[in-house]
Design a protein around this nucleic acid. Structure first.
Lengths: 341, 341
DNA sequence: CTGTTAGCGCGTTCAC
DNA sequence: GTGAACGCGCTAACAG
């Protein structure tokens, strides 16, 4: 778009800088890279020339030598970018902004497209691949023929030789219970999400475990459904009809929790006075928009992304690692459990 | 992670393939690229060797010659990825998956970080830059010193020499009105979002224009607030208190619309029978979760992304273009305006 | 201190 | 039908 862009389509090169500064290319290289054995005056001139030409080193060419590209590929299967974005941010931040760039591509849950993107990424010589799934269930490994480290996030690989990073959904369930107990609730029920999701089962396990530890029963058997607000509304109405004494309600997702809040209001129950409600995911747009705003357990995706990037580069440094690593979740308290919070 | 990965950290090169196949590099190159003057048997051997070594051509090196990298940088200021993701998908799909890859980076609305990412992207020799803003207000241009085409999406550049792509928010307002009129609503009100956003003002203009064209007044002066559900709830209560006759309600965003639905239910109004409600943005998670689901005007981000990518490459082909281009929006009808839809 | 030379991985002429 | 030579932009050994 710039005028000079047409004349010099790809920007100034080191050669241009060297010419302008009246030195050789290698001297210019050394000067700009702050390496020794360069006279201060020479360095000045080179720096000035670079400045004047608004020279940008070609990282690709730089890395042609080193073999690394400072680039990571992120293959997601999470259409809405709900997980991918925070994970990407985390990865980007792992080494300071700009030091590493992330290719993002969406495979839409399609294995063919996934391999296609994998190929495209490898051909661009990414230093590593981060694969993000849309559910915490195991997924097929991309295999071990890949010449760069691969880290699976959220959806673990079915191959124990691979490294998979997961949020601790069991712990998340425990945190939800512990919070309700800490604010004095004793008559607690859980409305779970889609039973085919490992995340749903894990959260249930964590909840049951924490309740058992407190020597309390769940006031009703846990109903499973899906992750929708509609399910939250229906299940809550059902639950309150049979167990009106409930004073603490854990919902399998923020969407379910939103449905629960709706139903509770329709039933004339005050939240949090009559019933305290906790969700999972801490999906901002849902959790902060409701009345009252929703207490929720955050999956810490950003930390997962940061860790994923770190592991990729650790693997490049030869550090072999495998198995499933879980990352603790984080409870975010809002008005649905503590008035005015 | 793979065993061979440690031995040959960066994957097989064309040279490796040639060696294994017992031919020269150039022969291997021609064979793999399906070019003529290669004996079929030779080609076979080369292909086999490439297969065996799981050889991936290095696009970076390929493009070292052509000067293009098949890569676009996407700088976003939209933290939640609400706009960026669909725009990215659109860009990715513009030329068929894998043909082009997208670097995504988030500048968090910070000009410094933006320039930093710009630098990082340029140094990776992207073929073009797409800048995505979080609001449709004009934003400072990145300047014309950039050696690749830049396209601004959602937030237009303040420099008319730049190319900016925007959703047609005025048209979106008109579509909302036309839809309500088409289902027989005549007593229409609008609850606007944050008045400091151009998008809010544009939608208001479109709505006023369409109402004027139908020779109908808005039943109440349009209140401005912010984009939240809380504002939607408050404004709706206020509106219904003074104008209980409203039968069509246009909300400045899906969040506001969700708040409106809440308030309407509290007031005992049936949606859509008593009041039909339309939102803007078609934010799936909000629009489909409510009861009833929300009719909303979609901003067509994916189309914007596709167009952005096309314009980048058109510019590379020398096609100069500038100014602001708007893209029509798309009404998505659901149960909040037509029963059961 | 500075310049020269040799690659990095690949496609692309060219001569053979 | 094949192979050597060149270049892309840069860094890293060496020479000077």
């Amino acid at each position: 778009m710039a005028q000079d862009a047409m004349a010099r389509p790809r920007g100034a090169t080191l050669r241009d800088v060297a010419t302008v500064a009246g030195v050789s290319v290698s001297t210019a290289s050394k000067a700009l890279n702050g390496r020794a054995h360069v006279h201060p005056d020479t360095r000045r001139r080179v720096m000035d020339a670079a400045e004047r030409l608004s020279f940008t080193p070609n990282v690709l060419a730089q890395n042609l030598t080193s073999g690394q590209s400072g680039t990571v590929g992120l293959i997601t299967n999470d259409l809405e970018g709900r997980f991918s974005i925070p994970i990407l941010m985390g990865a980007e931040n792992a080494f300071g902004a700009g030091k590493m760039s992330v290719f993002l591509c969406d495979a839409r849950g399609d294995a063919i497209r996934e391999r296609y993107h994998l190929q495209a990424l490898l051909s661009r010589r990414v230093d590593g691949i981060i694969v993000v799934g849309s559910r915490t269930d195991v997924r097929p490994s991309l295999g071990h023929e890949i010449p760069v480290p691969v880290v699976y996030v959220y959806a673990p690989s079915d191959d124990p030789e691979d490294l998979s990073l997961l949020p601790d959904n069991v712990g998340a369930g425990q945190q939800a219970v512990d919070h309700l107990l800490s604010i004095g609730r004793r008559t607690i029920a859980h409305i779970a999400g889609d039973p085919t999701y490992a995340a749903a089962q894990d959260r249930v396990r964590g909840i049951q475990h924490a309740m058992a530890a407190a020597q309390l029963p769940l006031v009703a058997p846990t109903p499973f459904g899906n992750w929708s607000e509609a399910w939250g509304r229906a299940a809550t109405r059902q639950l309150l009809a049979t167990h009106p004494e409930v004073d603490g309600l854990i919902c399998g997702s923020d969407q379910i929790a939103r449905g629960a809040l709706d139903a509770l209001r329709d039933l004339g129950r005050d939240v949090p006075r009559d019933v305290a409600v906790v969700g999972f995911d801490n999906w901002e747009i849902l959790a902060t928009g409701s009345a009252p705003p929703l207490t929720s357990v955050d999956m810490n995706f950003e930390a997962l992304g940061r860790m994923a990037a770190e592991r990729v580069f650790a693997a490049l440094d030869g550090e072999r690692q495998a198995g499933i690593v879980t990352q603790p979740c984080r409870l975010v308290v809002r008005g649905s459990t503590i008035d005015g919070a």
